[in-house]
């Protein structure tokens, strides 16, 4: 393999990884607070993509449509918590999990009924469509923007979680619901904020995903969702920096394995599951997860 192709794949891997990372962060945040794998989280990618298509149809301006789609998806994330999870706050975790799976099916099939199963093209704005040449490399700008946007959003998230009062309340709630309430903190608001932030990041990921693979259909969120979940487990579920690292590693791993061993190309999607099994077998707490003594 020539250096050029290697570099090209490296950049690709980082780029795909950054999208996994954006989605993985939402999984890990919700898990950190509710100890719930929010299976409907991947579907928010799809919700964001449809919302963006709609926004573009109305405003034909991505600077309005995309942020709007992110906000709408964030609100749907909150709605998801209110309807599917909040009524089960004191229920056993398994009920919550079943509710999550139900919510995921509901979202997918609701969009299927409304928009039909025929994939919709995604209107990629010029800003993201160009290709730049660096030496012998030809790289779509989206490939470069994706990790940059991811890092910026991640830094913003870190600021909220570590520097603001609400973020500190979030970290407190991830350890102890009751004592958090004893501080006069409205726990439901903190949980809603968690869903809002996680869903907004997933939406940003979903929009970039749709620009990268511009076919939008009601089931498009499933695979990236599952892979992001694997990334979150790989990084150490409950740890947001871990989710970022896990996302990048998974994206890189996927692309590089195919680049180095083209005969494995068909198994690209299987790699995530192999990693999941290996992590669960040998290091269930992931790369950055802590051992929590309960």
């Amino acid at each position: 393999m020539t250096n050029t192709i290697f570099l090209q794949q490296l950049v690709n891997g980082v780029s795909v990884g950054s999208l996994y990372a954006l989605v993985a962060i939402g999984y890990t945040m919700v898990y950190g607070i509710l100890r719930l794998i929010n299976f409907a989280h991947g579907d928010l990618l799809m919700v964001a993509a449809y919302a963006a298509i709609f926004g573009m149809g109305i405003f034909s301006n991505s600077w309005i449509a995309f942020p709007l789609a992110i906000i709408i998806t964030g609100c749907i994330g909150i709605l998801l918590d209110r309807t599917a999870y909040k009524p089960l706050r004191n229920a056993p975790r398994i009920s919550l999990l079943i509710s999550a799976i139900g919510a995921s099916f509901l979202l997918e099939n609701l969009f299927l009924v409304i928009f039909g199963g025929v994939p919709k093209p995604f209107p990629r704005p010029d800003f993201f469509a160009s290709v730049i040449d660096i030496g012998a490399l030809r790289i779509p700008v989206l490939t470069i923007y994706a990790p940059i946007i991811t890092i910026l959003l991640f830094l913003g998230l870190l600021y909220i979680v570590y520097r603001t009062k609400a973020g500190k309340a979030m970290r407190a709630a991830s350890r102890d619901f009751e004592t958090t309430r004893l501080m006069g903190i409205n726990l439901d608001r903190i949980i809603a904020l968690t869903f809002l932030l996680g869903s907004c990041l997933a939406a940003a990921g979903g929009i970039m995903w749709a620009m990268k693979y511009p076919q939008v259909n009601p089931f498009m969120g499933i695979f990236p969702g599952i892979k992001a979940f694997v990334a979150a487990v790989l990084g150490g579920i409950g740890n947001i920096t871990g989710a970022l690292v896990g996302g990048f590693l998974l994206g890189l791993g996927e692309i590089m394995i195919v680049a180095l061993m083209p005969e494995l190309a068909q198994y690209r999607d299987a790699l995530a599951f192999v990693i999941l099994i290996l992590v669960l077998l040998f290091r269930p707490r992931g790369i950055m997860g802590e051992t929590i003594v309960e």
Partner: peptide, 17 residues
């Protein structure tokens, strides 16, 4: 039930939420 994962200062901050 202090918040074990937060600093002393952050615990006090949450007390004054």
């Amino acid at each position: 039930h202090v918040f074990q994962n937060l600093s002393v200062f952050e615990n006090l901050e949450l007390g004054a939420y």
